[in-house]
Design a protein around this nucleic acid. Structure first.
Lengths: 208, 208
DNA sequence: CCATTATTCAACACTTTGTCGATTAAAATG
DNA sequence: CATTTTAATCGACAAAGTGTTGAATAATGG
C-alpha cells in the first residue's frame, strides 16, 4: 500500500473536502449536499473538486475506504463465539475494547456517518464484515447447526445488528462511557442475553 | 381521522407516485431520484407533482406516515419484557407474529425502504417506537436499575436494534420464513440470548 | 347538466452539474 | 536557486433539474 507521497496541495484539498463533507452531513444530511456547498465550505474552486472526485457519493466512498482497512483488521481478530462460550469472568473481551478505541479515534467520522443523518451503507458494511467473520468461525465451532436454537443465519443477523446498535448508541450518547466500560456492557449483553440482563428473579410486575 | 374522501384523480396520482418512488428507490437508491424521474415513471405531468408534494423527501415522508400508524398500534401492545420474563413454552410471542404479519402486508414498502438502498430514518423511527415502549414498561417492571447487569439505556439500544436487524434480514431473505416461524426465532433469541442459542455445551472448538 | 377541481401544457428564471482551455501559483527536483 | 512539473484557479459553456405561473383541458361529484 506504499503509494507515492501526494503533493502537499492535494493533501490539503482532500483534507478540506473531508472536513467540509462531515460538517455538511451533520447540518443538512447526506442528501441535499451539492458540490458547490462543499467547495464553498472548503474554500476551494469548484473545478478542483472534479480533479479528485467524480461526485459527492464518490468523495464519501473514498473517505470511507480510509477507515475500513483499520476496521477490518480489528474485526478479523474478533471471535464473538469465543466471547460467548469461553470468557466467564466479568471482564470485557479485549478485542471489543480495541474496537471501541479505534472507533473513538475516528469519532469525527463515525459519529456523523452512523447518525440518523448519516449513511446507511456504512453500518451495513460493518455488519457485513462482522457477519462474514462470524459465519466462518461458527461453521467450525458449531458444525451441527441442528443443535442450535436458531440457525446460523438468524443468530448472525441478530448479533451483528445488536452490536451495531450499541455502537450507534455509544456515539449518540456522546461517547458517555469509556471504551472499556462500553465493551463490558457489550460483553455482558452478548454472554447473558437481554432477558437475563434485566434480572428476572427480582422483577416487580405491576399486578400479578 | 375520517377526512373528506379524496377525488379519484388525486388518489390515482398519489398511487402512481408511490409506486414509481418504490421502484426507483430499488433501482437507483433513495438519493439520485429527481422529480422528473418520478413523473416520467408515473406518467403524469411534472407540475402535478408539486400540487401534492413539496419535493421528493416530502413524498417519502407522506408515504411513511401511512404505515406508521398501524405499526405504532402493534408496537404499543408489545411487552418485550413479558416476552423475556414470562413466556416459558417454546411458542412465539403473539404480538410479534402480528408484527410480522403487518410487515408482510406492506412488504412492497418495507422491503425497499429497509434495504441498503432505502431510508435509514425509517429503521430509526421504528427503533424509537420500540425504545419508548420498552423504557416505559421497564421502569415499572424493574424499577431498581442497579439490579440489572447493564443499565436500561444499553439494554434497550441492544434489544431494539437486534429486533430491527431480524426484520431487515427477514426482508433481505425474501421473507423466507412465515410470520409464525420468524417470530419464533426472535422469541428464542430474546429469551435465551445469542450465547446460549449456539448450544455451548456441544461446541467443537478446533483445538482445545 | 353544470360547477368544481385536478391535470396538463408551455414558459419562466434560477441553480446545479460536469467539462474545458487558458492562466496562475505552488511544489518537487536536481 | 532555477527549472520543470503539476495543482489550483478562473470564466465560460451546454445540459439538466428546480419550483412556479397562468391559461387551457379534462375528469369528477352533486
Amino acid at each position: 500500500m506504499a503509494t507515492k507521497p501526494e503533493d502537499r496541495r492535494t493533501v490539503r484539498t482532500k483534507k478540506l473536502l473531508r472536513q467540509a463533507l462531515l460538517e455538511l452531513i451533520e447540518e443538512k444530511g447526506i442528501d441535499r449536499i451539492t458540490v458547490r456547498d462543499l467547495t464553498d465550505r472548503a474554500e476551494i474552486n469548484r473545478g478542483t473538486f472534479y480533479l479528485h472526485y467524480q461526485d459527492v457519493p464518490d468523495l464519501l466512498d473514498k473517505i470511507k475506504e480510509e477507515v475500513f482497512a483499520g476496521l477490518q483488521a480489528i474485526i478479523s481478530r474478533m471471535y464473538i463465539i469465543r466471547l460467548m462460550a469461553e470468557t466467564n469472568e466479568d471482564k470485557p473481551y479485549e478485542v471489543i475494547v480495541e474496537l471501541f478505541e479505534y472507533l473513538g479515534e475516528h469519532a469525527d467520522f463515525f459519529r456523523v456517518l452512523l447518525s440518523p443523518k448519516g449513511d446507511i451503507s456504512l453500518a451495513l458494511r460493518i455488519k457485513d464484515m462482522m457477519a462474514r467473520q462470524m459465519m466462518a468461525k461458527l461453521e467450525i465451532w458449531q458444525p451441527r447447526e441442528e443443535l442450535m436454537l436458531v440457525s446460523r443465519e438468524w443468530l448472525i443477523a441478530y448479533t451483528t445488528s445488536s452490536n451495531i446498535g450499541i455502537i450507534q448508541h455509544w456515539f449518540a450518547s456522546g461517547q458517555a462511557l469509556s471504551p472499556y466500560e462500553i465493551a463490558l456492557v457489550m460483553t455482558r449483553l452478548v454472554k447473558n442475553g437481554p432477558a437475563r440482563s434485566i434480572n428476572v428473579e427480582h422483577l416487580s410486575p405491576p399486578e400479578k
